[in-house]
Design a protein around this nucleic acid. Sequence first.
DNA 1: GCTGTTATTAACAAAATGTTAAAAAGAGTA
DNA 2: TACTCTTTTTAACATTTTGTTAATAACAGC
Lengths: 276, 276
Amino acid sequence: MNSKNSDHDELTFLNSYDPTLYDRLSLTTDILVFGISDSINPNYRKLPEKKFSILLVKRKTHPFKDKWCLPGGFLQIDEELTNAPKRVLAKETNLHDVYLEQLYTFGAVNRDPRLRVVNVAYMALINKDQLQDELLADAAWFNVTQIQKENEIKIILKSEIDEICFTLLKINDDINDPLSYKIVDNELLAFDNPLVIFFGLLRMRNKINYTDIVFNMMPKYFTLKELQNVYEVILGRKLLDPAFRRIIKDKVVQTEFVRSGKGHRPSLLYRYKDPT
Amino acid sequence: MNSKNSDHDELTFLNSYDPTLYDRLSLTTDILVFGISDSINPNYRKLPEKKFSILLVKRKTHPFKDKWCLPGGFLQIDEELTNAPKRVLAKETNLHDVYLEQLYTFGAVNRDPRLRVVNVAYMALINKDQLQDELLADAAWFNVTQIQKENEIKIILKSEIDEICFTLLKINDDINDPLSYKIVDNELLAFDNPLVIFFGLLRMRNKINYTDIVFNMMPKYFTLKELQNVYEVILGRKLLDPAFRRIIKDKVVQTEFVRSGKGHRPSLLYRYKDPT
DNA sequence: GCTGTTATTAACAAAATGTTAAAAAGAGTA
DNA sequence: TACTCTTTTTAACATTTTGTTAATAACAGC
């Protein structure tokens, strides 16, 4: 068989192909938006505290009406998969050109009560200073606190207007698989969003150690202590200054600027050194 | 609004919901099966060489008839997403209870010439000793060789009956995103399979350093040198014996058995120490 | 100038990793 | 039996990285 014939066969086949031959379902995308919040410290001489936070929106329609959920939407039939989270994010937060990374695809049969839906979850990292407009009325930032016990992970999400709490139980040994956990005590979050959030936190804690993704959440200029605080809230533990500085100093460049007026030695401002 | 009313609203909504409201498409799953092959060394006194290899099947139908591809199939409408790769793997290789991990979801609009298909790729690790039956006539193991130049990655897949070669060009800085690469010079592989294979290799090389996944490809008993060889073929570089042994000795237990008769000091046989 | 505060780094300790080379334990062979 | 060839195994040291403590620096406010 020569190549011409083969191409011809393929064309004939494609022209007579019936696309309804296989089961068809809907595909959605959720976006787990991470950012860093400053919360004012009551002691006016102390530094503001950094908080690791995620963006949730309140559902206006059924199903899960009035519950919080991750911003998301349906994939369109003629739309690149990678475009869907961009489009949704632009619509919900007016953010463009943010760091996006595919997180995991969730496909439990009953995850949506309406119909069979498979969800491709993405993770976005934003520098909240770049938020041009106010958030929509039904969106809010929630600070993340994670409490780990034996086979149980409790996550508390706290905004100015609401507090969400849920627990994940480990039902399986495979620690890197989000489906190794079962959701319990979830009152306020829609769909399987607790799994998406948990898996995103896990991914962040891992990748922070061997990539430069944190810098997507930093402003252009920052002090090393501010950067260290971001590492600390993501990792959920304190780091020692000298050790942190040794490791991070390859990734940043000192600038001519300082942050002063704080009642102590001014801190030098650094910026990210692009590795090229 | 009380909870009873809310539940009632939700039920009313669900009963009147029209599932054809949103675009619907087909979902497939591909499985990148990794294994380790022994190739006999021509010098009879030398040890057999370990090769890192993947399983490909030859397509019998259009599209891409007679090209090699990853084993895969369509997700059924009432099937758990995690079940699809299990079902496909059982059918194609007669393997059950293998290590499976979700790799990435590929959703370029034109990745399948027939219809809009989104593909959830999985990675499987198998110990080839457990293969109970012969492979199907149209399946074969291909040894993997990867050659990295500047912005170019060349991958050579070699089986007893065929040799496949393709190149990926880096078109984007984001090194962890498979879509940062463009496929060139691909003659023999179907769909976007080169991207799946490349991303799987990347994932393996990363995870081998901070997880115990290699042991899914090892037989029950193995020598430390055999284990080291597996690390070496996956990482694509030689390791120094004492350094490797120091790191790996926490993960294995020495057994009472030895492998002898090789014309040199016998090697102690170890087994995986489950971390529990 | 003194106090309170945080930034920055020096200096040392401890741990991890890289490297070289020697010893151990067999099979084959003269 | 003694010697060679081979690979396994580890000792011993060098080097690098990381952990820790504590000293010094530089400001604001009083």
